[in-house]
Protein backbone atom coordinates (compact mmCIF):
# COMPACT_ATOMS: atom_id res chain seq x y z
CA UNK A 1 0.00 0.00 0.00
CA UNK A 2 1.43 3.40 -1.04
CA UNK A 3 0.77 5.94 1.69
CA UNK A 4 1.36 9.67 1.80
CA UNK A 5 1.26 12.07 4.72
CA UNK A 6 0.47 15.67 3.84
CA UNK A 7 0.95 18.58 6.23
CA UNK A 8 -1.59 21.06 4.89
CA UNK A 9 -1.30 24.78 5.55
CA UNK A 10 0.86 27.84 5.13
CA UNK A 11 4.04 27.87 7.25
CA UNK A 12 4.28 31.67 7.12
CA UNK A 13 0.71 32.22 8.32
CA UNK A 14 1.14 31.51 12.03
CA UNK A 15 -0.85 28.54 13.32
CA UNK A 16 -2.04 27.81 9.80
CA UNK A 17 1.40 26.16 9.62
CA UNK A 18 0.52 23.52 12.22
CA UNK A 19 -0.11 20.93 9.50
CA UNK A 20 3.29 21.35 7.81
CA UNK A 21 4.99 21.32 11.22
CA UNK A 22 3.17 18.08 12.13
CA UNK A 23 4.41 16.59 8.86
CA UNK A 24 7.98 17.55 9.78
CA UNK A 25 7.61 15.84 13.14
CA UNK A 26 6.00 12.76 11.62
CA UNK A 27 8.72 12.51 8.97
CA UNK A 28 11.25 11.68 11.70
CA UNK A 29 9.20 8.65 12.76
CA UNK A 30 7.83 7.03 9.61
CA UNK A 31 9.48 4.28 7.57
CA UNK A 32 11.16 5.17 4.30
CA UNK A 33 8.36 3.78 2.15
CA UNK A 34 5.84 6.29 3.53
CA UNK A 35 6.16 9.66 1.77
CA UNK A 36 5.73 12.91 3.69
CA UNK A 37 5.06 16.28 2.10
CA UNK A 38 3.70 19.68 2.97
CA UNK A 39 1.31 21.64 0.82
CA UNK A 40 -0.01 25.20 0.96
CA UNK A 41 -2.36 24.73 -1.98
CA UNK A 42 -6.02 23.95 -1.92
CA UNK A 43 -8.07 22.27 -4.59
CA UNK A 44 -6.60 20.89 -7.74
CA UNK A 45 -2.92 21.06 -6.82
CA UNK A 46 -3.56 19.22 -3.58
CA UNK A 47 -5.48 16.47 -5.32
CA UNK A 48 -2.74 16.22 -7.94
CA UNK A 49 -0.30 15.66 -5.10
CA UNK A 50 -2.40 12.72 -3.85
CA UNK A 51 -2.60 10.91 -7.17
CA UNK A 52 -0.84 7.55 -7.31
CA UNK A 53 -1.19 6.84 -3.59
CA UNK A 54 -3.62 4.31 -2.12
CA UNK A 55 -4.11 6.18 1.11
CA UNK A 56 -3.46 9.77 2.14
CA UNK A 57 -3.27 11.05 5.72
CA UNK A 58 -3.68 14.81 6.05
CA UNK A 59 -2.66 16.90 9.04
CA UNK A 60 -4.65 20.11 8.96
CA UNK A 61 -6.32 22.86 10.99
CA UNK A 62 -9.86 24.12 11.12
CA UNK A 63 -11.24 27.41 12.33
CA UNK A 64 -12.20 27.09 15.97
CA UNK A 65 -15.78 25.79 16.13
CA UNK A 66 -15.99 25.38 19.89
CA UNK A 67 -14.79 21.78 19.81
CA UNK A 68 -11.23 21.62 21.15
CA UNK A 69 -10.73 17.99 20.18
CA UNK A 70 -8.60 16.69 17.39
CA UNK A 71 -11.07 15.58 14.76
CA UNK A 72 -10.72 12.65 12.39
CA UNK A 73 -12.68 12.38 9.14
CA UNK A 74 -12.49 9.64 6.54
CA UNK A 75 -13.20 10.19 2.88
CA UNK A 76 -13.43 7.61 0.12
CA UNK A 77 -13.04 9.74 -3.01
CA UNK A 78 -14.04 6.98 -5.47
CA UNK A 79 -17.34 6.36 -3.75
CA UNK A 80 -18.77 9.56 -2.42
CA UNK A 81 -19.05 13.27 -2.94
CA UNK A 82 -16.31 14.90 -0.94
CA UNK A 83 -17.12 17.11 2.01
CA UNK A 84 -14.39 18.21 4.34
CA UNK A 85 -14.93 20.25 7.49
CA UNK A 86 -11.64 22.06 7.16
CA UNK A 87 -10.43 25.60 6.87
CA UNK A 88 -9.00 24.71 3.43
CA UNK A 89 -12.04 22.96 1.93
CA UNK A 90 -13.32 25.26 -0.82
CA UNK A 91 -11.96 24.11 -4.12
CA UNK A 92 -10.72 20.76 -2.79
CA UNK A 93 -14.25 19.41 -2.78
CA UNK A 94 -14.74 20.54 -6.37
CA UNK A 95 -11.38 19.10 -7.43
CA UNK A 96 -12.03 15.72 -5.79
CA UNK A 97 -15.44 15.52 -7.39
CA UNK A 98 -13.93 16.37 -10.77
CA UNK A 99 -11.37 13.59 -10.53
CA UNK A 100 -14.09 11.20 -9.36
CA UNK A 101 -16.24 12.19 -12.34
CA UNK A 102 -13.30 11.33 -14.57
CA UNK A 103 -13.07 7.96 -12.81
CA UNK A 104 -9.40 8.70 -12.28
CA UNK A 105 -7.74 5.42 -11.25
CA UNK A 106 -4.89 7.35 -9.60
CA UNK A 107 -7.16 8.84 -6.94
CA UNK A 108 -6.48 7.40 -3.47
CA UNK A 109 -8.97 4.90 -2.08
CA UNK A 110 -9.04 6.66 1.25
CA UNK A 111 -8.20 10.07 2.66
CA UNK A 112 -7.94 10.39 6.43
CA UNK A 113 -8.02 13.98 7.56
CA UNK A 114 -7.05 15.11 11.05
CA UNK A 115 -7.82 18.66 12.02
CA UNK A 116 -7.14 20.73 15.08
CA UNK A 117 -8.91 24.01 15.88
CA UNK A 118 -7.14 27.37 15.56
CA UNK A 119 -8.12 31.00 15.61
CA UNK A 120 -8.30 32.48 12.10
CA UNK A 121 -4.83 33.76 11.16
CA UNK A 122 -4.70 37.50 10.58
CA UNK A 123 -1.00 38.23 10.25
CA UNK A 124 2.08 36.88 8.53
CA UNK A 125 4.14 34.95 11.03
CA UNK A 126 6.70 32.22 10.45
CA UNK A 127 6.40 30.84 14.01
CA UNK A 128 3.68 28.78 15.67
CA UNK A 129 2.10 29.86 18.92
CA UNK A 130 3.01 27.87 22.04
CA UNK A 131 -0.29 26.04 21.79
CA UNK A 132 0.30 25.56 18.08
CA UNK A 133 3.52 23.63 18.63
CA UNK A 134 1.75 21.28 21.05
CA UNK A 135 -1.11 20.87 18.59
CA UNK A 136 1.38 19.95 15.87
CA UNK A 137 2.86 17.27 18.13
CA UNK A 138 -0.63 15.85 18.81
CA UNK A 139 -1.39 15.85 15.09
CA UNK A 140 1.86 14.03 14.33
CA UNK A 141 1.07 11.45 17.02
CA UNK A 142 -2.38 10.91 15.54
CA UNK A 143 -0.99 10.38 12.07
CA UNK A 144 1.62 7.92 13.33
CA UNK A 145 -1.04 6.00 15.31
CA UNK A 146 -3.14 5.81 12.17
CA UNK A 147 -0.21 4.23 10.33
CA UNK A 148 0.26 1.77 13.22
CA UNK A 149 -3.39 0.76 13.11
CA UNK A 150 -2.91 -0.30 9.53
CA UNK A 151 0.33 -2.09 10.49
CA UNK A 152 2.49 -0.04 8.21
CA UNK A 153 4.94 1.12 10.86
Amino acid sequence: MRQLIIGWGNPIAGDDGIGPRAAELAAERVPAHVDVRSCSHAGLRLVELMRGYDRVLIADVRIDDGDAKLRKEILRPHDEEASLPTRHDGTLREALNAFRTLRDPELPDEIVLFSTPIAAPTTWNAALSQGGEAAAERLADAVIRELEVTAVV
Binding site: E48, R51, E94, A98, F99, T101, L102, D104
Partner: peptide, 23 residues
Amino acid sequence: RNIVGVIGKVGLELGKEVIKHRS
Protein backbone atom coordinates in the same frame (compact mmCIF):
# COMPACT_ATOMS: atom_id res chain seq x y z
CA ARG B 1 -20.46 25.85 -14.23
CA ASN B 2 -17.22 24.20 -13.20
CA ILE B 3 -14.79 21.51 -14.29
CA VAL B 4 -17.42 18.79 -13.87
CA GLY B 5 -19.66 20.68 -16.30
CA VAL B 6 -16.72 21.10 -18.67
CA ILE B 7 -16.13 17.35 -18.65
CA GLY B 8 -19.79 16.90 -19.54
CA LYS B 9 -19.29 19.25 -22.46
CA VAL B 10 -15.92 18.17 -23.86
CA GLY B 11 -16.17 14.50 -22.95
CA LEU B 12 -14.52 12.14 -20.53
CA GLU B 13 -11.54 11.36 -22.75
CA LEU B 14 -10.50 14.99 -23.17
CA GLY B 15 -11.06 15.43 -19.45
CA LYS B 16 -8.53 12.66 -18.79
CA GLU B 17 -6.08 14.39 -21.12
CA VAL B 18 -6.52 17.56 -19.06
CA ILE B 19 -5.49 15.71 -15.92
CA LYS B 20 -2.61 13.97 -17.66
CA HIS B 21 -1.12 17.15 -19.05
CA ARG B 22 -1.57 19.09 -15.84
CA SER B 23 0.42 16.32 -14.19
